[in-house]
Design a protein around this nucleic acid. Structure first.
Lengths: 326, 326
DNA sequence: TTGTATGCGTTATCAG
DNA sequence: CTGATAACGCATACAA
């Protein structure tokens, strides 16, 4: 069923039907006639053909490193809400932690298809910068601070300082750290730096063996905690770069009957669902993930509406969640 | 940049370029010439125009009730993997638990855009049935058993029987239940029925006040647990229809220093990330969520490839995760 | 206010 | 093997 068949049935020209669809000039009678035919036939215009003409797809590409993560799924939920309110659809691409696929998806998306791209950033390489700057479609990067595109990010450094101060305030002096690759500037580098700087400020040493690095998964915490304890028998607490890593650490400690926080204190980042349920509940920081997605989508839609809007970079706050694990 | 400009630059006809793009008949020299021009210009074909001709969008619509859920995000991850392997993109629609929006999205998707739809089912009404049966595009329903479309679902009933048997085997006689609306056949009705049937089979009574119903969120468990305890002072255990609900119950019990499992046993469904981390760890059943998404996507792609494939309905198994909470 | 004619970028047909 | 040409379904400039 296409526009000219409808026109024929309604006894008008295809152009009239098009005008009907787009609220153009039309007499009441014709309007009514067309309305009736469309209702009876259940006709809907082809969005492909519309796009071919108007160049508007109403599609936003969203690229994420993984979907089964508390924090990311919240960001996506925030994005999803704003987009659907504005009549946009979300094309979701999951790189499954294969960084190179980010570039592929950015390309695929930008070639055609989407009007804008939201990238949940992890490791942003020079190749990213080059590719992103070359795009015709607007981009917003979430979770990492960059200077060549609009971005929304969390105050990872200060959050880390906050947690470290809190741990030190609780009397911990010998604190270990389990993090992720520093190639991830937000989660890997800044959180670690905030910790180290705070320790230094208080005159506390952190030797090389008290710092471990691994993946974004629970295994990281589970496998590095015993190493940390082996290398630092007098360890009093562990700061983990994410709640998920902290969960892995807790799993190991529980299994080995090491009491939290009496023997070892634990902190994470992200305030995931499990944090408040655990016994003892996990001390962590709350980041505004949902808002991050929401705000990111809004900024992207603004950029689409007026392409010459200057880049914005928004730093979101955080809240210390002082629970019982330290 | 379009196909005829490329053709002009390469000194061939647009048709030749099209053939180049689609692996048609072409001499080596022309092929080389076209390849060079395409490389130099960075040309990519317009997927809209391609679609307009071929009717193929390479888009799959996926409709979910919420994104920030352990189980759902795993299903989506499974779907995502299969689709991307096959060169399909995923259009994700999040209804945010507004059931009516499911119908809207099914309509939007099916009108144009997508070649197939995956629906993560919750409450399937007669309106759903009518709409789904009227669609031209293939559909696969995940998580609910229905007879008019292909579906992949879990053995909710037997899983519930398994948990109930296990609890009874542990000596519990007075068991309460916190569930969700029975309009959700899989999670609401079957899980409850499996529990009730098993209790009856063992000659154990479950009075009305030992059964509570609420949302899919933690609040359900958190708010209904005290009611359950008030109405049934001699309660020995609670079976919760989801891990998330169980987490809410555990939160309440922890806050009120009611020991698990000594005073009250707890079970859930789903084997979410938190289950094994909790102390005591949560007894639950493992469902194959990732595989559910994977299998669903495969079946959908089969249906797209050969539209007259008969409907399939696949029941996935489960595994009892015997942890410490009961 | 209305209709005609044209083109968006591609692919399929068909004659060469 | 190749190229001209006609669709695909729609929106718009322009003429009426």
């Amino acid at each position: 069923m296409n526009i000219s068949q409808i026109a024929k049935l309604a006894g008008v020209s295809p152009a009239a039907v098009s005008r009907y669809l787009n609220n153009g000039y039309l007499s009441e009678e014709k309007r009514a006639a067309i309305a009736r035919v469309i209702r009876e036939t259940g006709y809907t215009p082809s969005s492909q053909a519309q796009t071919l003409r108007t160049k508007r797809t109403k599609l936003i590409g969203v690229i994420i490193p993984k979907i089964d993560s508390d924090s990311i799924s919240q960001v996506v939920a925030g994005i999803s809400q704003v987009l659907s309110e504005q009549g946009y659809q979300m094309l979701l691409a999951n790189t499954a932690n294969q960084n190179s696929r980010e570039l592929d998806y950015i390309n695929t998306f930008s070639q055609n298809m989407v009007e804008g791209i939201i990238l949940l950033g992890t490791i942003l390489t020079p190749a990213h910068k080059k590719l992103l700057k070359s795009l015709k479609v607007p981009v917003v990067v979430l979770g990492q601070s960059i200077d060549y595109e609009s971005c929304i990010y969390h105050d990872d450094y200060q959050a880390s300082v906050g947690l470290a101060e809190y741990m030190i305030g609780k009397g911990c002096k010998k604190i270990g750290y389990i993090g992720v690759t520093e190639k991830d500037k937000a989660v890997g580098k800044l959180r670690k730096q905030g910790f180290l700087d705070t320790m230094t400020k208080h005159g506390l040493k952190v030797c090389e063996s008290a710092i471990k690095t691994g993946s974004f998964y629970m295994e990281n915490g589970y496998e590095n905690t015993p190493l940390l304890l082996r290398d630092n028998p007098d360890l009093e607490a562990i700061l983990c770069a994410t709640d998920t890593i902290a969960l892995g650490a807790i799993k190991y400690l529980n299994q080995n009957r090491i009491r939290i926080p009496e023997e070892i204190g634990i902190c994470g980042f992200g305030n995931g669902r499990a944090a408040s349920i655990l016994t003892p509940s996990l001390t962590t920081v709350h980041f505004y993930y949902w808002e991050c997605g929401e705000e990111g989508a809004k900024i992207l839609l603004e950029k689409i509406a007026s392409p010459d809007t200057p880049n914005k970079s928004v730093k979101l706050g955080f809240e210390l969640v002082k629970n019982e694990s330290v």
